[in-house]
Amino acid sequence: MGLNSAMATVPTKEKGSDEIDFVRWFSQLEGNLAETLNGVLLRAARPVQVGAASGAQNLASTSAGRLVGWSLREATGTAPGVVRIWDGRDNGGALLACVNLGQGASETQWMAPGGVSFQHGLYVEIITGAGLSDDVEGAVYLGGAE
């Protein structure tokens, strides 16, 4: 069971003393650090590479967050591509979006500032087989701190 409040009185120059609620302060700090890059607060969306690009990953996030957009393209120009975006660490969660890409086509979708919340992580699945291209690349955009 967590603390509801942890108050402390600290001396200040202006008022003589001030009370600090450490639980509230820590909760705010934790929220602010939730979306940082090397300790710098990200106020805009954070791009995460997905698909065939070098260094890309299919598991874009391992925790809760907000999907605020994507930019994807089918890179071969010879077959259509299909991308599914799931709430979870694999394709067993709730389907958040399905993106159909024509041969050599691209799609960019922007849903900020709100976006779509996900609870369990964000998994990007590139559907292959049946004449579909597995050479899809791009990025999903995850919402930053507000």
Rank of each mutant, 00 (worst) to 15 (best):
C98H: 06
W70T: 03
A79Q: 11
P80A: 15
V48L: 11
S133G: 07
G16E: 00
V40H: 02
A45G: 08
S61N: 10
E137Q: 14
I85A: 15
P11S: 04
G55D: 04
M1Y: 07
V116I: 15
W70V: 01
F118P: 01
P47E: 05
V140W: 14
A75G: 02
F118E: 06
N4D: 07
P80I: 06
S117F: 10
W110C: 00
V99C: 05
R73D: 04
A53P: 00
G2E: 09
G138L: 13
V10R: 03
N38W: 05
A130Q: 13
V23A: 04
A105Q: 10
G51F: 10
M1W: 06
E125K: 11
A8Q: 15
A79P: 00
Q103R: 11
S117L: 12
G115M: 11
G104D: 01
M111Y: 08
T62P: 04
A8V: 15
Y141A: 08
R89Y: 03
S63F: 06
V140G: 06
S117T: 14
A34G: 07
E137W: 05
G31R: 14
V10L: 03
R89I: 09
A52Q: 04
T12R: 04
L41D: 02
L96T: 05
A52D: 05
E74N: 00
G55I: 09
G81S: 01
I85P: 06
A112W: 02
V82Y: 10
P47Q: 10
L132F: 12
A56R: 09
I127F: 06
L59F: 04
S5M: 08
L42S: 00
G93W: 11
S17T: 09
A8Y: 05
A105V: 00
D18V: 14
S71T: 09
Q49S: 14
W25P: 00
T36N: 06
D87M: 09
G115V: 10
M7W: 07
V124T: 08
